[in-house]
């Protein structure tokens, strides 16, 4: 049995379980309603008078702050609570395959949610002549950012059997990752800290790295940032689960 077979078996089960419960549909509807509201009302899409999705993407770091932990909080905490962790880890699967499989399933679910926001692309193309390359880069960045958030939630959900605790922990960590590079916060920091320090802190922020994608620039450093957050958080998930089993 290849690693690919094991990972896809886990991922399929996970994805099916999303759609087996009303949670998936509730999430999709809320996600789409909120993106719509923020883009057109709070983001002043029409008043801007420009053919771009800036008012769409600018809200994503904040929207994901609440919605991604809601999707990922049950990933491992539910396995721990229901005791299925024992079942899973006595099946012939390597822990990293299980971790990756569950992560990919949730990421794919988020990708579906993001993909269903496609009417905004149609809207902006009907109304004007946007740079579709920039929009595509924005989508790529948004997806990577969702993945990074999800990996952090994956890690916090491995820490506890309680979904609520897992949700709160991951919101706090993600909030730090946002605020470290949020302009009002960095402006405040720069008054008493050296610019080099502020830049170092900001380098850990998703805002700094999502910025380029929004402008249509796919920088390898930004790609690397999101991928390494994912890699690190999933690795930490593995360590946490191993320590949990070792007692």
């Amino acid at each position: 049995m290849s690693a690919g077979h094991m990972i896809s078996t886990i991922a399929r089960r996970e994805l099916t379980s999303y759609f087996a419960s009303p949670v998936a549909y509730v999430f999709l509807v809320i996600f789409l309603l909120l993106t719509g509201f923020f883009t057109f009302t709070a983001g002043a899409f029409f008043e801007r008078g420009e053919a771009s999705l800036a008012s769409f993407f600018m809200w994503h770091p904040w929207l994901y702050l609440v919605l991604v932990p809601a999707v990922g909080m049950r990933l491992w905490s539910e396995e721990r609570r229901a005791g299925t962790l024992e079942l899973l880890f006595t099946l012939p699967i390597a822990p990293w395959q299980a971790i990756l499989g569950k992560f990919l399933a949730s990421w794919l679910f988020l990708a579906i949610a993001l993909g269903l926001s496609f009417p905004v692309i149609l809207t902006v193309n009907v109304l004007g002549e946007p740079d579709n390359g920039q929009i595509l880069a924005g989508y790529l960045g948004s997806l990577l950012m969702a993945g990074a958030y999800l990996a952090v939630t994956c890690m916090t959900s491995a820490m506890t059997r309680n979904q609520v605790v897992s949700f709160i922990l991951s919101v706090v960590i993600l909030l730090f990752l946002i605020l470290a590079g949020f302009t009002p916060v960095t402006d405040l920091l720069v008054r008493w800290a050296s610019p080099a320090f502020v830049d170092t802190v900001a380098a850990f922020s998703v805002m700094t790295h999502f910025d380029g994608f929004q402008r249509g620039v796919i920088d390898s450093r930004d790609l690397l940032f999101f991928l390494s957050v994912i890699g690190f958080a999933l690795f930490a998930t593995g360590v946490i689960l191993r320590n949990h089993r070792a007692g």
Binding site: H5, M6, T9, R13, T16, S17, A20, S21, A82, G83, T84, E86, L87, T90, L91, P92, I93
Partner: peptide, 29 residues
């Protein structure tokens, strides 16, 4: 683990799956 079949104490299973779905998952694994 390939040689072992294991019934844990609490007999855990995935509650959102059907019996057939669960057994099919176990067979795939």
């Amino acid at each position: 683990k390939r040689l072992i079949g294991y019934l844990p104490e609490a007999a855990p299973s995935y509650p959102d799956m059907t019996v057939e779905g669960f057994l099919s998952f176990a067979a795939d694994m």
